[in-house]
Design a protein around this nucleic acid. Structure first.
Lengths: 342, 342
DNA sequence: TTGAAAGCGCTAACAC
DNA sequence: GTGTTAGCGCTTTCAA
């Protein structure tokens, strides 16, 4: 390796001169394109390595009109759930030469619009974004971008191009059915106060619809904002139970607050699932280590990530433009009674 | 908004023609550069919006030789800790016009090298990466890139350019001192089996050094790989206590396994911190909701992210090329006895 | 305040 | 198998 410290970054021309091979052929070697003799290739690789040449993808992208980037736009990184979706996406993209670039919206559609504008200005090969709700401008940008778009996580509604998700309404309906079948009747809901979390909203709507169909109404509900989810789960639970002491079921909008509630109830010596049943949503890994396994619904987020990536990568042409609704998996855990016999 | 669906993405020329203003002036308006009359600006903005024009940063970057991207390279996204660092980085970058681009290495230095190569080929304005250990090639690339580099999280060793972190060796030393001062003597360590997690290794080394100085040896150690950290914490704890039942302190390499251990010990009816003391590392939010507050050390990761970002953004010129070692904050929690009196 | 010309570093297309 | 030419869509620079 040479030691000179280049102020001017190295270019193909430098490698060309150092190896005595034309720029074009150097470019071919570096991209493994076309036929290049072993001898020439050897010379070029050697020169590039010893100079420490790093190709300029800005120039390459402009010339080839192609960029190996996939824009991935998600609401949050601290939610645990989205990193898992990302995991599925990167795993699937790994062998395609495509690279995910992450944008975070903090659950704001306005922010999403700004993030999309920014990412589209890099002319990515595709876009994966969470949810079906977007601003009018976002929608227009995506439609005009001329690249594949996959909306993920939610399948309750029309999409722009392809959709891969679960029906959160169905999650709520199913949970209501399970709870009612187990004989619970005085049911409370505990969730985040997030008007822009449409998936949570749809789950709650489905849940209430399911209860109502059986002539049951939600007895109480409690919401929180920010803070440690585990701690908030405790606080919400204490609050809802002091308001409505005879609740016999608590449905949490996510597993983290559900876990907090579970710890709280156990400390209070409540009989779970006898006195009171509990359920969350997401099936996060954390549940494995809790004193009791919380009932939950698996959102199938890794699979969602994988399939979205496959669609962008062109590995699933039959799915392009389709809405793929995966069926959510209910996990009874140990916090819900077995169904009553007739 | 017009409805025609362009196969060919729109260019400045399209906006220029639609507005009757030269490309150059359109460019000025869209970047808020130079003096443009209000009337002209108005026309251009109107045309751009109605066409749905999205600038091409590939072309812009090539022409201007500047790109508003900051490469951020971290070991993992599922660790909880790194998303927080990212939070600090994005918060600080928000008003600088710079944008973080995330790369994940899975704790592999080889993978880090590949990720760096890839990111540098986009000619970012700076690089933030975790740790001080890198391959020779990675180091060479960073040195030759001619852009600011900030290595974060760890300050135990020489850096390439700027460094912002904590001394993990000191974290271990301090924890040893606190534990010994509280009178514990039969001490076990529980951690991840990750040869490439150099920070965990340095903490353990500092911890043992601290014990040894006082003539105390680590009584037992236990390691795990993969799986749910909370569950693994339980399993490790059960295992180490069955091997060495008279341990009086358990030091965990992170809070998640520490939390698992705490739940396990409480279930077993152990007196904490009387029979046995516990401590973790990181001060994760989750600790707030546990039945008892786990002793831990705050890694100051949000601040680390913020300062790294400030250095890249040029807001802290005095720190460039320096090693900034923040002092880690010990949190005694409720799982360690008060120091013995004399 | 606006415009025209040149070129950023690479690759597509074609010639040899 | 290798080289030449002409741009990709912007911004820099300079002129008007």
């Amino acid at each position: 390796m040479t030691n000179r410290k280049p102020r001017r970054p190295l270019t193909l021309r430098d490698v060309s001169e150092a190896s005595g091979v034309s720029e074009m052929t150097v470019s071919r070697v570096l991209r493994n394109r076309g036929d290049v003799s072993a001898a020439t290739r050897e010379k070029v690789v050697e020169a590039a390595k010893s100079l420490g040449y790093v190709p300029n993808k800005i120039a390459g992208g402009l010339a080839s009109q192609r960029v190996n980037l996939v824009a991935v736009v998600i609401p949050s990184l601290s939610n645990l759930v989205f990193p898992e979706v990302l995991g599925g996406i990167s795993a699937e993209l790994e062998n395609t030469g495509l690279q995910p670039v992450i944008g975070v919206t903090n659950y704001s559609l306005t922010r999403e619009e700004a993030v999309l504008y920014d990412m589209l200005s890099w002319r990515p090969s595709g876009v994966i974004l969470a949810g079906l709700e977007h601003t009018r401008v976002s929608r227009a940008m995506l439609e005009n971008a001329g690249i594949p778009v996959v909306e993920i996580m939610d399948s309750d509604g029309p999409g722009i191009d392809s959709v891969v998700g679960i029906s959160h309404r169905q999650v709520g309906l199913d949970m209501a059915a399970h709870i009612l079948a187990a004989g619970y009747r005085r049911i409370g809901f505990l969730g985040t106060h997030m008007p822009e979390d449409h998936r949570a909203r749809k789950r709650l709507a489905g849940f209430e619809e399911g209860l109502n169909r059986a002539g049951v109404n939600l007895t109480a509900r409690e919401f929180y904002q920010g803070g440690s989810a585990l701690l908030k789960g405790r606080e919400l639970t204490e609050r809802i139970l002091s308001r409505e002491p005879d609740l016999d079921f608590l449905y949490y909008s996510n597993d983290m607050i559900g876990a907090g509630g579970l710890l709280y109830c156990l400390e209070k010596g409540l009989d779970i699932p006898g006195d009171i049943g509990l359920a969350g949503f997401n099936n996060v890994e954390l549940l494995d280590g809790l004193p009791r396994r919380l009932a939950t619904t698996d959102a199938r987020r890794i699979e969602i990530g994988r399939r979205a990536a496959r669609i962008i990568a062109g590995l699933e042409p039959e799915s392009v433009g389709q809405t793929i609704s995966l069926s959510p998996n209910f996990h009874p855990g140990q916090t819900i009674r077995h169904a009553a016999q007739g």
